[in-house]
Simulated assay, not measured.
Amino acid sequence: MDWFQALVLALIQGLTEFLPISSSAHLILPSEVLGWPDQGLAFDVAVHVGTLVAVMAYYRRDLLAMLGGAGQAVSQRRMNQDLRLALLVGLATVPAVVFGFLGDDWIERELRSALVIAITTLLFGALLWLADAYGKRSRALTTLGVAGALLIGFAQALALIPGTSRSGITITAALALGYRREEAARFSFLLSIPVILGAALLKSKDLLEQQLPVDWGMMALGAGVSAVTAYLTIVFFIRLLERIGMLPFVIYRLILGVALLVWLA
């Protein structure tokens, strides 16, 4: 992988990690369609760290409130809304961890293909449109309970399949439950923090075990570009969400899915 390819892949990671269009699909496609070499484990770690920094920076107030809520709960010996949200994020993370542990190798071996990406891009794009068009979009995140968090968490586990989109499927589930668009995106992005952190740690462990040579300059480029791009993407996505809705992303997914099927034919 050369520097130009690294720059493009870092931009793709930053742009697609939090938009409902699947970052994994867009990172696989350059290899499938253009014949680019695999980005490598070290670079994968770098761009994940970049997106993690971006989402934590954007939601820093929520994270600090959760931390403060935990301290307040200990001192007052009673639950509060901030700690409750943190616990629901943790609970919703469990399904992805379990299914990832059980099926990640099989998914990596059997489902990383352009055909799978085309099918999931179309299928979950249609579900996103249905949830956005017919969801009530009236509930606030303060009404989220254990059952709703688990449902969103199981939906997130489907994102292990390339082309599904982690943000897309969790936002779809939240919209289907009747949450407002901004609230659905907020929970989805908070939910991404433990998932991205866990993925980065596991990939770092694999990297250390394999003792592969690391191009630190390319890693710095990947982390920096993906962090800045992801942060700006979150800012503009949240600001425009109520105005534009999910339809532009649904249309993009349908075009991409059809284009892939035509290319594969």
Rank of each mutant, 00 (worst) to 15 (best):
A140G: 15
V97N: 00
D44R: 04
A174L: 09
A259H: 00
R137I: 00
A86K: 04
A92M: 11
T51N: 06
M56A: 15
M218I: 08
G100A: 11
L232E: 04
L212G: 00
A159N: 03
L41A: 10
A118V: 10
A157P: 04
S24A: 14
L83E: 10
L158I: 10
L151N: 06
I255C: 14
T172C: 14
I21R: 08
T142N: 15
V89I: 13
I193A: 11
T51W: 12
L207E: 00
A174N: 04
D44G: 07
S165E: 09
L19H: 08
G153E: 04
L191W: 01
K136Y: 02
L27N: 12
F124Q: 09
I152Q: 10
V49F: 14
S188R: 13
T16L: 00
A149M: 12
S165C: 11
L41M: 14
Q13P: 09
F249A: 07
R243V: 14
E110Q: 13
G153Y: 06
S138V: 13
W3Q: 13
D206L: 14
A149K: 04
L27H: 08
T93I: 03
L102M: 11
W263R: 14
D2P: 05
A6C: 10
S188V: 01
Y179N: 07
A42V: 05
P162I: 03
R243P: 03
N80W: 03
L102I: 08
G90N: 04
D215Y: 03
Q72S: 15
W129L: 15
G69T: 09
L34G: 07
S188A: 15
L88E: 08
P194W: 01
S192D: 03
D62Y: 12
L212C: 01
G90I: 07
I119V: 15
I12H: 07
A114D: 11
Q39N: 10
V8S: 04
G90M: 05
S22C: 12
L41I: 13
G68P: 02
L261T: 04
V47T: 11
T16A: 08
G217Y: 08
I196P: 00
R137F: 00
R61I: 01
L197S: 12
S204T: 15
F154M: 13
A230W: 03
L254Y: 07
R77V: 08
T93W: 05
G100L: 07
A42T: 07
E17V: 06
V89L: 06
T121C: 08
L160S: 05
D38Y: 08
A223N: 12
Q13H: 12
V49M: 12
T120C: 14
A140Q: 13
Q156R: 10
G68V: 03
L261I: 13
I119Y: 15
S192N: 05
L232D: 04
V146C: 02
D206A: 14
V53H: 01
